[in-house]
Design a protein around this nucleic acid. Sequence first.
DNA 1: CTCCTAATCAATCAGATGATTGAATCACGA
DNA 2: TCGTGATTCAATCATCTGATTGATTAGGAG
Lengths: 192, 192
Amino acid sequence: MPKTIHAPEARRDELVAAAYREIATSGFEGLRTREVAGAVGVNVATLHYYFPTKEDLIRAVVGYAMSRFQSTLAQQGTAMERLRGHFRGLRRLAHEEPELFRVMAELMIRSSRDQKLAEIIRKLNEYWHSTLRSLLRGAKEERALPKDVDPDGMSAVIVATLKGVYLLPERFGPPEALDKALRQLEHTIGLR
Amino acid sequence: MPKTIHAPEARRDELVAAAYREIATSGFEGLRTREVAGAVGVNVATLHYYFPTKEDLIRAVVGYAMSRFQSTLAQQGTAMERLRGHFRGLRRLAHEEPELFRVMAELMIRSSRDQKLAEIIRKLNEYWHSTLRSLLRGAKEERALPKDVDPDGMSAVIVATLKGVYLLPERFGPPEALDKALRQLEHTIGLR
DNA sequence: CTCCTAATCAATCAGATGATTGAATCACGA
DNA sequence: TCGTGATTCAATCATCTGATTGATTAGGAG
């Protein structure tokens, strides 16, 4: 009894979005297929029609979350402009979609127990590292960066700091530490 | 039928340690009271004799994990020596008790859904920040740190980077990124 | 109209899971 | 030796949870 005619894939997407929200608020610890189905207003069996197992649903959520990060590494301007754009993009994303970072944190932790997920995260990290590295190299050629900065090491610091700042924030009290850390980091690499 | 005479609290400690190991390997997602009791070779009811609820057990694990961090902020020498000692202590801890960092990561994530846990983590962070801040100030007075380093901002960067490096590591491939990031960070604050 | 397929639901299953109960068992002091 | 309190266990409960089954409905093809 399909109550409404959906565009193809619409129901599927609804389920993924609901699972994503559930993970953001309750973590994998609290992810229940019934809750997800209920949030969409659909029977559990319908969920299993689209995703044979819970794992299949989780995989779809992973893809959904990953796709949301592509935007923060903009593709134009000088290396310095692109570095600034990256920091700005992350700030915006953290402001507009805080759930995304909660879900990413859950995924990172889970990757130590899920081989396939680990591989996906590893590739994302690698891409992130290499992009930052070449941006830092470019910034050095533009003479916008101190000579004693090693692009390799500094890209590792930036990635680690951004992870620490965005994925393991201090949830109570004002987000002072986040701003302080970002400001100092940007100062260290000459963005301010 | 107590098979062995235990020193008081021994059974209790065994259970906490088992739960700690279980969290390290399976996360909260996979924490089961039966498993914990089984690992100690004891009936589930015995676990509930010591810990009325699963939450009580988790709280005990939190205390156990926290207590393991006190050692890395040694209390003697110049500010620079103590800073080096802190970095060295963390490296040693990560080498000797890698589970500790997996458990800490789980706790940090969970703190966004557990008010009491959040309060505990907040205090730990505060202590960490303020200790680093005063060490950095001391290092500046010892003229071992560049003048343009802001102790407040830099302590935030250090905390965030260490969190990123130790709590959200890239689990596959050699731990290159960890070393690179630490080296660069130490270089930035003049420890190398 | 008839038949087929996609989509959906109510009902149910089997196993897991946190917790409780009541009965043992042991050490120790009176 | 007897009683008492601290521990422990086997058995059981109630509920949760991922998954399956069989029936039902709507829309489109022939």
